[in-house]
Design a protein around this nucleic acid. Structure first.
Lengths: 192, 192
DNA sequence: GCTGATTTGTCGTATATCCAACACATCGAT
DNA sequence: ATCGATGTGTTGGATATACGACAAATCAGC
């Protein structure tokens, strides 16, 4: 499928900025990183930074989303059904993403990370639901996607908080699947 | 010492072009490399290429000079005298540079390489001569620099042609030093 | 709390780079 | 020799990026 072409300068400059930010994140906590640090490391002008990003928080979100998309891209689930395997894979992707972030800087923007994960999960669930249940009302599908994304994310929080050291992500998610499936069972017309 | 600042875009773009050219030179002979190849590999526009370089031959020369300058920079000889050690070091630098070029693409622009080596040697010799003999006529110093640069380069050609496999550059250059020193002996006022 | 240093965010202007178009040159297959 | 494909070199206009200046906000030391 054809894609609108982006000016190569934009691609290069954004990459410079994002790569510099990621590298700095390995050295300092997010709250100690300045726009000046980033523009110096990237060797670009401050005005150029602001041409591309609203501020450093905008950059953070976009970097996190880009890194997340490596693990959690709808295209990887386009041909999947909302079944046990899919939930296991999504859960593993979330936990992998969380683990891939540098421990030191993670804590400063955990809320942003959480929101980004949930939003991406919501997008994926919604698209899968639309595909499997095209005749169901959009509001219902939206609500289901919200519930599923918060639920799965919540499971990852609990896993990290209580069970990380003794169970694998795969083992953990299986224990909460029956509840999740009941929700799915409703829209599939399956009985109690 | 302060240096006029170059626009970072210029630095980046030239580096993209030169790096792409060097990488392509490792894969194809020079005569098979096109401007289109380079601009594709560098992901820059053809007009931008022509903004920086007259043509592909101009690029070749500038790349070769830049690589040569890593081995043969006047700044490394600023505090040297025109003595045996200096000649040995210069000769080793020439032969090292020649060996660092990829064998396959070397043959296509050997003349350009030769000219660049001689020109750089001439610059270095001339500056050293001016420093050691400030009162001698410029024409004489120029001529001496020309003689020395052609001579040293010629020695490297002969070494590669006849003696490369059995002598080191250092051993070889020592055998031609007495002749070279006689020339130097003239401007130093030393006897026969 | 004060103060100097540093960073942020923005603006007008200049420059580097991009794009598409064009005419011409070169290349490779026939 | 011919012809279609490909590459070269150039141009005008558009866009992205740089620079320096400025006012305001934030930070760190006292």
């Amino acid at each position: 499928m054809t894609q609108t072409k982006t000016d190569p300068r934009i691609l290069r400059t954004r990459k410079l900025i994002m790569d510099s930010f990621i590298e700095l994140s390995g050295k300092k906590d997010f709250k100690d990183i300045t726009v000046k640090d980033i523009t110096n490391a990237a060797m670009i002008n401050r005005a150029t930074f602001y041409y591309h990003f609203e501020d450093i928080y905008d950059l953070l979100e976009k970097v996190l989303l880009e890194v997340l998309l490596i693990n959690l891209d709808y295209h990887d689930y386009e041909n999947s059904k909302l079944d046990e395997e899919t939930f296991i894979n999504l859960f593993k992707a979330i936990t992998k993403f969380q683990q891939s972030l540098s421990y030191r800087c993670h804590r400063s923007y955990e809320e942003t990370i959480a929101r980004i994960i949930r939003e991406q999960l919501e997008v994926i669930f919604y698209k899968m639901l639309v595909k499997e249940h095209p005749t169901i009302e959009e509001n219902v599908l939206k609500g289901t996607a919200v519930m599923l994304s918060w639920g799965l994310y919540g499971a990852s929080v609990e896993w990290r908080r209580t069970s990380k050291k003794m169970t694998t992500p795969e083992e953990y998610i299986k224990s909460v699947l029956p509840f999740i499936k009941n929700g799915i069972g409703f829209v599939s017309g399956n009985g109690k």
